[in-house]
Nucleic acid binder design. Structure first.
Lengths: 104, 104
DNA sequence: CCAAGATGCAACCCTGGGGTTGCACAGGAG
DNA sequence: CTCCTGTGCAACCCCAGGGTTGCATCTTGG
């Protein structure tokens, strides 16, 4: 598959967003809690969580007066396997080019 | 590892860039050639190739008056395996939260 | 009921970076 | 040698989106 993982990557590309994801992967947390731990406002955190949720990387659950978020590994694992497989195929071509370069 | 793959993701996040990468993964090509195939200028292609090269995802080789670029799978595969592994770990936590939600 | 903490919206700012155009320069094809 | 083509800068445009502040709303603890 060379389908567009674009969306997922876009979600993972931002540094802050990645920190948030890893953090809630370690242990569930609310937006406010995350805002206290990271050097950004709660709203920024909220936006990141929305993006992550949109990519299916986060599961949210209302828990009393707060909303707890946790990372979903399924999608990430699937994406990871795809990348691994795609990468495998490319190495062959690379070897061919390098060889040709040395020959001629 | 929860190390920052940020850099690599940033390189993969853009749609056009991903197309370029997939394209030169299928078969080596010069920037000009790619510019003819994709709906963007050669300069845009060049910039993308620079980013990809910076992330170690592309190998370039001067071939006469043109420079041929080809995708390197190694990095991508490694990244893929990392993601898969990281994702695995998260699923446990998720299961726990869902269960707790159903109980209480 | 009342105060405190958490969330939900919305308007707004501002930089990064994807994309373009223009031009000079180099290496091949004829 | 002389065009044609592919590269290599560099200056510029423009907007998506990461980040902020302010305020209204709602739920829980007293």
């Amino acid at each position: 598959m060379s389908a567009p993982p674009d969306a997922a990557f876009a979600a993972l590309a931002d540094g802050t967003r990645w920190k948030v994801l890893v953090r809630i992967g370690r242990e569930p947390a609310s937006a406010s809690a995350l805002a206290r731990e990271l050097p950004v406002s709660r709203q920024a955190i909220v936006k990141h969580l929305e993006v992550l949720a949109g990519a299916g990387l986060v599961f949210s659950q209302r828990r009393g007066r707060e909303v707890v978020h946790v990372a979903v590994g399924e999608r990430l694992s699937a994406l990871g396997r795809d990348l691994d497989r795609i990468g495998q195929g490319w190495d062959d071509r690379l070897a061919a080019l390098k060889e040709e370069a040395e020959d001629g």
